[in-house]
Every structure is written in structure tokens, then in C-alpha cells.
Amino acid sequence: MFEQFSHANYHSICDTLAANDPDLSQIIQSHGYPPLWSRPNTFETLVHIILEQQVSLASALSALNKLRERIQEVTPARVLLLTDEEFKACYCSRQKTSYIRYLAGAIISGQIDLKAMEQMPDDEIRTQLTALKGIGNWTVDVYLMFVLQHTDVFPIGDLAAVSALKRIKNLPKETTREELLAIIQQWKPYRTVAAMLLWHDYLAPRPPKVGVKNPKA
């Protein structure tokens, strides 16, 4: 079965990780506990995650807000009424438009039941979602972590999390996936919360390097 984190146990899980990894402990000492990032289990949330694929968070949110403006409520039935031109006006690429339509159809047909997924193990959820056009492992990872709040998921395809991991461990850029996974394995069964700590570190403001000349000056 799967374990979940919540406001009740989030800080204690962070403390457990910190007690076993001084680099994660340093993140908490420097920046405090990470926010408990979460999202509702809705079609709109999955659309949002699809929009976040391979673009900035700001760009994805801008596209989602455009969809909201156009149809008020982002539901499967309403997105299926949009034309290609309307999707384009909402900053949705042709590829992501097809992904969103495919997801909408799967939910309407009953192929995907988001409510039922709240009681499913990770592997079953991953099998069902990755069977859909345009949904890969990164999208499922984010859904499991942010929406269902399963404790032991690490998004190895997430550039920000991997960048922060390399930084706190002083790893070279060419560190292999297998070497990274060996480190991540040590954070079981709380790899999701470890990723939250890494994102927290990645997003934290950094002081400018002393002696570096501003190229625009």
C-alpha cells in the first residue's frame, strides 16, 4: 500500500530525512522547512501539469489562466468544445491541445477515474495514466506528489530537482543517472519529501557572487 504525507506529519518527515542526511539538514537550516505544495485532484490540475511539460511554470500558468478566462471552468466537456484556433489563442501548442483533448475524452468515457485513483497504488496509477497520449513519467510523478501526496516518489526527469541534488552533493555535471538514483534510494521511503526539500533549495534566493562583473554594466 502507499503512504501519504500531510500537514500533520510533513515536518517530522523532513526532520527524519535531515537526521540521516546532513545535506538535507543544511537546506532546512538555511531556508527553513519547504512549503507543503499541493493541488486538488481535478481535471484542471492534470491539464495544468500537462501545460507545465518542458516550459517554465510562468508560461504554463499563463496558458491555464487563458483557458479559465475563455471557458470559466476547465472541465472535460468544456475543453472539448474549443476549436484549434481557440486553443492556440490560449497559448496551447498543437501537441498539448491534442493531449488535453485526449485526457478529456478518457475522463468522459470513464477510462480514467481521478477519484478512484486516490485509493490506488503508484504502479497502477502510472500504468493507467501513461497509457494516455502525452502523459509520461514526469507528469505522473508530479500528480502522485502534489495531488495524491504519496511519500515515496522522486521525479528523476525533473531538471530543477536534479540540479539541486547535484549542487548540495557537490556532484559533477556528468554524474550518471545510475549514480543519482543510488543517492536518491537512500531517502526511501520519503523520496517525495526529499524532492520537496531540493525544490525548496533550488528556489531559494542566492547572494550574488562577489567580484563578478555585471556584463550589462
Rank of each mutant, 00 (worst) to 15 (best):
V79C: 00
G157C: 04
K213E: 10
V47D: 04
I49N: 06
L148K: 00
S163W: 11
K66Y: 06
N41F: 03
V162I: 14
K188N: 13
Y10D: 00
A217G: 13
Y202S: 09
F146V: 06
N65Q: 14
H48D: 15
L171E: 00
R167A: 14
T42F: 09
S93V: 13
P34R: 03
R177G: 07
F2V: 05
A19G: 15
D21F: 01
G134S: 01
L159P: 05
D23Q: 14
P207C: 09
D23S: 12
S30R: 11
Q29V: 14
G157M: 08
L57R: 04
A160I: 04
D15S: 11
D113K: 08
L64G: 09
A160N: 03
I27F: 05
S163M: 12
S30H: 02
Q26M: 11
D201F: 13
H11P: 03
D84L: 11
L159I: 15
L61R: 15
D23F: 10
L165Q: 00
D84V: 10
R39S: 14
F154E: 01
A77H: 10
R177Y: 11
H48S: 15
V162S: 00
L198W: 01
T151Y: 05
A8S: 12
N214A: 02
R206I: 13
I100Y: 03
E179S: 15
E124P: 04
S93H: 08
L51M: 06
S38D: 15
K188E: 15
T192R: 02
L46P: 00
S98K: 11
R68V: 15
L24G: 10
L61P: 15
A195D: 04
Q149R: 13
T16E: 07
V210N: 05
L82P: 00
A131C: 08
L148A: 07
D15A: 12
I50L: 12
Y190K: 03
R206E: 07
G32R: 08
L203S: 14
Y190E: 02
G157L: 10
K66M: 06
N170H: 09
D141S: 13
K169M: 12
N214K: 00
C14F: 00
L80K: 08
